[in-house]
Design a protein around this nucleic acid. Structure first.
Lengths: 345, 345
DNA sequence: TCAGTTAACAACATCGATTGTGCAAAATAA
DNA sequence: TTATTTTGCACAATCGATGTTGTTAACTGA
């Protein structure tokens, strides 16, 4: 009954049932009707297979069919609520389609991205979801050379369809709400300082968000000085330094702070943790990205939650339609008020 | 040069160089020296392979060698700092060994765990890391039948080696520190109420933590009523209800709360978010697990950070030594004071 | 000079599943 | 009864890489 050492194959089942390997294959892969196998034969084979704990060797199947049933996804990092929620949604969609999800983080390193994608291709993944890649188009070149369909998420590319958040819109409403909060809790003046920290200049999302931030600041405040904007990296440690610089420049905490991503927020908090609690009485923070705990600080934190479920759903639809034109689909995010906990996920 | 439609194989390289497929294989897989291929031949083949963007078909290799180079890991969920940090460490260790990490979440569902492991086995993973499984021993049976090495993490099993946190010790120091905080910020009396919320009764880790909690409470307070302990589920929503029940029972927030995992903390916060801010002046929370944002609330939150790097390192060492005896290795966690941000990861 | 090495590679079987083709036997038609 | 179709399955090639076993030709030693 139990095979102690090696996996049961169709050849084992073949011997046990007296049927040929091809018949066994048909019976077990579900193609037996179209191959005109008698129902009784198929049922018997399936029965014996079950008794012997048979599961197909998916490497062999993949080799023969030139597709593996694996869907790949690369993300910049796991330790981040936004990306891990994307992983979660990705797995759900993949599972719903009977596919096996493979998620690998690439640490925002172009070389690592390349290596990882090459590895995934070598395992014959059927399609690839690229989240927040530093260079989606380089990945497109890799995928195109082997006919693998690709969809970008979070950051757009020009050689494959992309599903991203409407960052300009999201950053606009976030900035507006932040200014409202500053007016309410800040020092009182129309000139309460507001800063921007986090993200990478040349990054599309950051670019959009800075643009929205500047636009709203212009509309409501007449503008914002360039040295109030720090966008050098997604590395939390960089944001720690930026926060320090900001406080030195300002002579204390500003009344408003737009934090671009929870990565940056982590870094900012690392600096904040050195300050006495009283210092936080007037600051309001707007953070682009959502984390349930981050929304629960002792100062107001307004957050933007990207609509991960819908983004992923859309990405899979595009994939299933062939993932042809490099069209960009924008999904609107949601504003989350301080101390709010939306439903799980 | 560029192959527009299909992957380059050793047969393509064979034709291009005039060498036989087996020679090409040897030249490209690095075994050419022992197979007495002339260096010049090997170099030429490698050159041509590079020019044509050859990468090996790992499914074919895996089929032939009966191992895939994939290492599997299952985790209960992605959207949790503890587990995602484990994922991160797992990837680092796997990469350092030239293996391809495959991480899948199984949602604390025994059936999903089984299905996922079966799928991973079908892809011929070389070894399996099982994190926080509801039933590690059932997985051991699956792995044993196909000779796949397994190591459990977070929750121990009896049929495979396990690496876990010294939960009793960790919960002891957390409870002690929590009581110290309660003494400092609480109502003032020796009888400030302290509660426990989160986790699953029959779960080994929860069991240890409750035991430590009770022991310390007995030592310092003479004991704790049974109805102060809520341990029904890791589902945040359950903890939301538990928090509500607790507050009804107590007529407000208690002075001390031991929260078992950030999952539970999320649920608790969902209820807390409905309470006015003044209510939080006296509460101290001890949370078993670490999350940078959770450590930064407007009331003291003492956290326990499990030593993920070391756990994973140890797990890989055990794996490399054959993963034979079902020995349990315990790693000590670290206490993190409120508003503290340890180095990243 | 001729057996005996050794270098350098080619041929071929193999891993496990899929799939086009072939071929009896059974069923149906004429 | 004979011709024709259908049923039910077996055979064998194939996917791409690996490793064992040949097989030459050059080389060595006595």
């Amino acid at each position: 009954m139990e095979n102690i050492s090696k996996k049961t194959t169709i050849y084992d089942i073949s011997k046990l049932t007296g049927a040929s390997p091809s018949t066994v294959s048909a019976a077990l892969s579900g193609t037996w009707r179209s191959r005109r196998i008698k129902e009784a034969t198929a049922l018997k084979i399936q029965q014996v297979a079950r008794e012997n704990g048979y599961t197909p060797n998916l490497q062999a199947r993949g080799l023969r069919k030139a597709r593996s049933g694996l869907v790949g996804m690369i993300v910049p990092a796991h330790t981040n609520r936004y990306f891990s929620t994307l992983s979660n949604a990705f797995e759900a969609e993949a599972r719903a389609r009977g596919l096996c999800p493979v998620i690998v983080s690439t640490l925002r390193d172009p070389e690592e991205e390349r290596r990882t994608v090459e590895t995934l291709i070598s395992y014959a993944i059927d399609s690839l979801f690229v989240v927040g890649a530093t260079n989606p188009d380089a990945i497109s070149d890799l995928c195109a050379s082997v006919n693998i369909k690709q969809v970008n998420l979070d950051l757009p590319g020009t050689k494959a369809p992309s599903v991203i958040t409407d960052d300009y819109w999201g950053a606009r409403i976030l900035t507006q709400e932040l200014l409202r909060s500053v007016k309410k809790h800040g020092g009182g003046g129309e000139d309460d300082p507001v800063y921007f920290i986090g993200g990478f200049q040349s990054d599309y999302a950051t670019d959009q968000r800075i643009k929205a931030f500047k636009d709203v600041m212009k509309e409501e405040r007449g503008g914002v000085p360039d040295n109030h904007i720090f966008a050098n990296s997604y590395d939390p440690n960089a944001s720690t330094l930026d926060a320090e610089t900001m406080c030195k420049l300002e002579g204390g905490l500003p009344s408003g702070l737009f934090v671009n991503s929870t990565f940056a927020f982590e870094g900012v908090l690392r600096y904040f943790s050195k300050l006495p609690r009283e210092d936080f009485s007037k600051i309001s923070v707007g953070c682009y990205d959502y984390d349930p705990f981050a929304s629960f600080m002792h100062f107001p934190v307004i957050m933007v939650r990207q609509n991960v479920q819908e983004m992923m759903k859309e990405a899979f639809i595009i994939m299933e339609n062939g993932a042809l034109e490099p069209k960009v689909t924008e999904i609107k995010p949601t504003l989350i008020q301080p101390r709010t906990m939306p439903e799980a996920r």
